[in-house]
């Protein structure tokens, strides 16, 4: 019987993958992918908590929240891609290591 802990473990693995991607990837698109993984890990958690919460049976709050997050992620991806485009225009690359203009 698959229970709540299984979902949480999957979510944690997804989360770790996302963080790892962000830390290790130098490509901006890769980092964006990592961010998407982290967001979706959170979505899995939200839906799972709603499904296995006895007090919440019959309502779909978690699912609805997850849908909001997906929408936000789409918007965030659009903004991020626009930033990357400008980044590429300025540096002819999408390597984030090169973009250290804010260095103090």
């Amino acid at each position: 019987m698959v229970g709540l802990p299984h979902y949480l473990i999957v979510a944690a693995i997804m989360m770790c993958c996302g963080v790892g991607t962000i830390l290790l990837k130098r490509n901006a698109i890769g980092i964006l992918l990592g961010v998407e993984l982290i967001l979706n890990a959170a979505n899995v958690n939200l839906v799972a908590f709603n499904r296995y919460n006895a007090n919440a049976s019959g309502n779909l709050d978690g699912q609805i929240f997850a849908i909001f997050v997906i929408v936000l992620a789409a918007a965030e991806a659009a903004v991020a891609l626009a930033i990357f485009l400008n980044f590429y225009n300025n540096f002819s690359t999408v390597d984030v290591e090169r973009g250290d203009n804010l260095k103090g």
Binding site: I22, L23, E97, G104
Partner: peptide, 21 residues
């Protein structure tokens, strides 16, 4: 003070993420 503090502001995205984590 600024000379010390500016070391933190590396401008490297992954550094920031590391610190955040």
């Amino acid at each position: 003070v600024g000379a010390v503090a500016r070391g933190l502001q590396s401008g490297r995205l992954r550094g920031y993420v590391t610190i955040m984590l």
